[in-house]
Simulated scan of single mutants.
Amino acid sequence: MANSVQTALDHEAAEVTGASAAPGVEHAGTEHAEPMLLGFAPPVAVVSTSMIVLLAILVWKGVPKLIATGLDTKIAEIKAQLAEAKTLRAEAEALRKEYADKIAGAEHDAAEMLDHARHEAQAIIAKAETDVAEVIVRRERMAQDKIGAAELAAVTQLRAQAAAAAAAAAKGLIASNHSATADKALVDQAIAGI
């Protein structure tokens, strides 16, 4: 075994210097001797053994239990956060529904108010038209009454003027046609008729 280690060392030294390792020693191509730990264990065995020892120490100290506990705690936190998120989502959905209902109610109320305002406006317009028609009829009646009163006053005034004119004309006729002797005959005739 010592020979193979020596040959490997010579071979490496020859590669570095570019010379042949030893006279009469042939190069075996790319074959190298595998290093050994303390001359009996290859590095793969050492690494495997140290990993097994490390894992055993970790199991002995309870590291998997700590990791599982940490993961369980983290899972519990995530579940709590998910439950809180579900609760918040449900509350948000309830608020959204409530506000949607309020908006729909407000739109319905606004439509009802608008319809009510239209009906009131139509009622006011109808009442105003009725009132205007009544005022027009009343004014026409008042105008006709004034015209009738004016006609009556004019007729009365004309009658009074005609009566005054007739009385003046009769007075003039009587004064011109009657004398004292004619009056005496009329008075005698009136007394005789009694």
Rank of each mutant, 00 (worst) to 15 (best):
M1P: 06
N3Y: 12
N3M: 13
S4V: 11
T7V: 10
L9E: 12
H11D: 04
A14H: 00
E15I: 06
A21Q: 04
P23I: 12
P23G: 09
V25L: 12
E31Q: 05
H32R: 13
A33H: 09
A33M: 10
E34N: 03
P35M: 05
M36H: 03
L38E: 10
L38K: 01
G39Y: 03
G39W: 08
G39V: 01
P42T: 04
V44D: 08
A45H: 04
V46N: 06
V47D: 02
T49C: 07
M51V: 03
L58C: 09
L58Y: 07
V59Y: 10
W60E: 13
G62H: 10
G62N: 09
L66R: 14
I67W: 12
T69Q: 09
G70N: 13
D72H: 10
D72V: 01
K74Y: 05
I75L: 15
I75G: 14
I78V: 12
L82W: 04
L82Q: 14
K86L: 06
L88F: 07
E93T: 12
A94P: 00
A94T: 02
A94Q: 02
K97W: 02
E98Y: 07
A100S: 14
K102P: 06
K102C: 04
A104L: 06
A104C: 03
E107I: 07
H108E: 15
A110I: 14
M113T: 02
Q122N: 08
K127E: 15
K127L: 11
T130N: 02
T130A: 08
D131Q: 11
V132F: 11
A133K: 07
R139E: 07
E140L: 14
R141W: 00
I147R: 12
E151N: 01
E151F: 03
L152N: 00
A153N: 01
A153C: 00
A154C: 00
L158E: 15
Q161C: 03
A163L: 06
A165I: 11
A166W: 01
A169I: 07
A169G: 10
K171L: 10
S176G: 08
S179M: 09
S179F: 12
T181V: 10
D183T: 11
V187N: 00
D188I: 09
Q189N: 08
A190L: 08
I191N: 06
I191Y: 01
I191H: 10
A192I: 10
A192F: 13
I194A: 15
